[in-house]
Computed example of a mutant assay.
Amino acid sequence: MWLTLFYSCTGGAALVYTLYRWVIPAAVQYHGGLALMWHDVIVERLLDTLTQSTRPQRLLGAVQKNATRGDPRSVVRAIDHFCRHKEWAMNVGDEKGCILDSVVSEVNPAAVLELGTYCGYSTVRIASLLPPHAKLITLEFNPDFAAIARQVIAWAGLEEKVQLVEGASGDWIPKMKEQFGVKTFDLVFLDHWKDRYLPDTKLMEECGLLRKGSVLLADNVICPGTPDYLEYVRSSPRYTSQYFKSHLEYTKVEDGLEKSVFLG
């Protein structure tokens, strides 16, 4: 009897682990809503409870364990490995990250604004490609995320190039010129709350933070999606836009980046 019970429990545990580790992740790979629900709600809450830590803290631990201090690319690789093989996280990711890298290299910006830091993954990618004396200002609303991001950025050795600011984008955008001496931004990376893409873009226009030739690069325009923002930049005579098809970070769900050049 006890042997039967033991085998039943062992088999049940093995089945649950197989479902959790391989079957369900594979099943949600092609469905945006299910993928986000599984990874960003169910798994995250489960692991937070089991480990008594947060996903950003676990991501930082992976960086400190596997990345070389002062080497930005090793930090990026450590996070990508963590997100593909350990635990999904809402970074721009390796596939779309290559598109981000190419746009940063093409623009060669002196002044960059990033809206939405999270744990600093895209911050590290951007800052590592900036020319000497260039500056990146990154805004993060969540103070817990900001605390982790500061450590990730420091581990990459990029503190001198990055100004991390805590608070709401709607509050900080009007103060950019006064607080940071910024005239205009050459590149803006939008990767924060999706319902803020359009109002923040219009706010940057009103505040004179965009010049002719300024580039806006927006993530997650398909999944979760930013239809009002896309309609605006694609139909406005003030922009010329290009869509880069890709996938939601670390999945097979269609997503992409929208690159929009401000025409003045």
Score class of each variant (00 low, 15 high):
Leu100Ala: 08
Asn91Ser: 11
Gln29Gly: 03
Phe141Val: 13
Thr226Leu: 00
Ser214Val: 08
Val124Phe: 05
His85Cys: 03
Val253Gly: 11
Thr68His: 10
Gly213Gln: 11
Asp40Ile: 06
Phe244Tyr: 12
Gln52Asp: 08
Asp186Pro: 06
Phe189Ile: 03
Val107Cys: 04
Glu140Asp: 00
Leu257Gln: 10
Lys65Met: 15
His39Ser: 04
Gln163Glu: 11
Val215Tyr: 08
Trp2Cys: 14
Glu254Leu: 15
Thr251Arg: 04
Ser8Ile: 11
Leu158Met: 07
His133Lys: 11
Val104Ala: 01
Val75Pro: 11
Arg211Leu: 05
Glu159Gly: 00
Ala111His: 09
Leu100Lys: 14
Glu166His: 04
Glu231Leu: 01
Val233Ala: 02
Val165Gln: 00
Pro174Asp: 05
Phe141Met: 08
Glu258Phe: 02
Leu100Thr: 10
Cys98Gly: 15
Pro224Met: 13
Asp195Tyr: 07
Phe6His: 10
Leu15Gly: 06
Pro132Cys: 05
Trp88Val: 05
Tyr118Arg: 01
Lys183Tyr: 08
Arg69Ala: 14
Arg238Asp: 09
Thr201Val: 13
Ala27Gly: 03
Lys86Ala: 09
Cys207Tyr: 02
Gly116Met: 00
Asp101Cys: 07
Ser74Gly: 03
His192Asn: 07
Thr138His: 09
Lys212Val: 06
Glu178His: 12
Leu115His: 02
Val215Asn: 15
Tyr20Gly: 07
Ser128Gly: 04
Val124Glu: 11
Leu263His: 02
Val182Phe: 02
Val103Cys: 09
Met37Glu: 11
Val112Glu: 00
Thr240Arg: 07
Arg77Phe: 01
Val107Phe: 03
Ala156Ser: 07
Ala156His: 04
Gly12Glu: 00
Ser122Val: 02
Phe82Ser: 04
Asp48Glu: 12
Met204Gly: 12
Tyr197Pro: 02
Ser214His: 15
Leu36Asn: 09
Leu209Cys: 13
Ser246Lys: 12
Gly157Asn: 00
Phe6Met: 14
Thr68Arg: 14
Val162Ile: 09
Lys177Val: 03
Phe262Met: 06
Cys207Thr: 13
Gly33Lys: 13
Ser8Leu: 11
Thr251Gln: 06
Gly93Ile: 03
Ser169Leu: 06
Asp80Phe: 01
Asp101Thr: 06
Ala127Thr: 07
Tyr118Gln: 00
Gly213Met: 13
Leu47Asn: 14
Ser74Thr: 04
Thr117Asp: 01
Tyr7His: 09
Ala78Gln: 13
Asp195Glu: 10
Asp200Gln: 15
Val107Asp: 01
Gly181His: 01
Val112Leu: 03
Asp101Asn: 10
Leu187Cys: 11
